[in-house]
Amino acid sequence: MLECVSKEINQVTTMAPTESLREMFAMIELEMRRLRHDRTEIYTRAVQPILWLAVYGTVMSHVRDIPTGGIPYIDYITPGVLLQSTIFVSVFYGLTIVWERETGILKRLLVAPSSRYATVIGRAIASGVRATVQALIIFPVAILLGVKFISNPLYILAAFLMLFMISGGFAALSIFVASLMKTRERFMGIGQAMIMPLFFASNALYPISLMPPFLQSIAFVNPLTYAVDAVRGLMISGNVTNIFADFTAVIVFDILIFTAASISFRKIIE
């Protein structure tokens, strides 16, 4: 074993992509193992979105004034509720990072032979996987509540891909915020202040056309709007005319935020 390590020293190479991939998979595995040991969190976090669907969705479906394009209201908000629940997981993922910073875990990860970018991206993707699992719990409940999903499995798969991509992006945003806000309390404050406005300033609960112009312009730059549009098209309405633009918007968001998080992450342990 000592010999193999010495051999490695002589290979003066830069970080190979396989090493980065390896670390990302290790981070995803870590998240899955954590989930396996403690599933309560994923169930308790499913309660709120299910209430949104079962109570708010059912009550509001009697109000005929919201132009949903002929879709039952509960069906209309299902994509938004799914997204909200996944984004909740992602946004609070930064708390894990703050905790790991307070303990020595992050110091230790940064001393391991892997790139810091791989650490950030790996963690964000791992959170995306966790968030997607969260959505998988709510999905069957929505079916039980009578929500009619498009039966094309490819569409559903693409919708889950979108859920995963947007949650990964928000997890990176959360890591970015965590590297700026170094205490748990400050982080909690920012996290809480972020989610609801994101949700309300998007097309999750009502069409953008109903919003005042000011809110409309926020909704326009809110990545959640594009994710909701894509997921609604793929899961509920079957109208996928904007799908290309939606995915492009979310990919641009992901690239920007992954870069920002990777850069700020260097500072996190100093």
């Binding site: 870590l30 193992r33 954590r34 307070e102 303990t103 020595g104 875990i105 110091k107 230790r108």
Partner: peptide, 10 residues
């Protein structure tokens, strides 16, 4: 490191 550095939930 000086501080605890393992994941406690696995």
């Amino acid at each position: 490191p000086q501080e605890m550095s393992v994941w406690t939930d696995i």
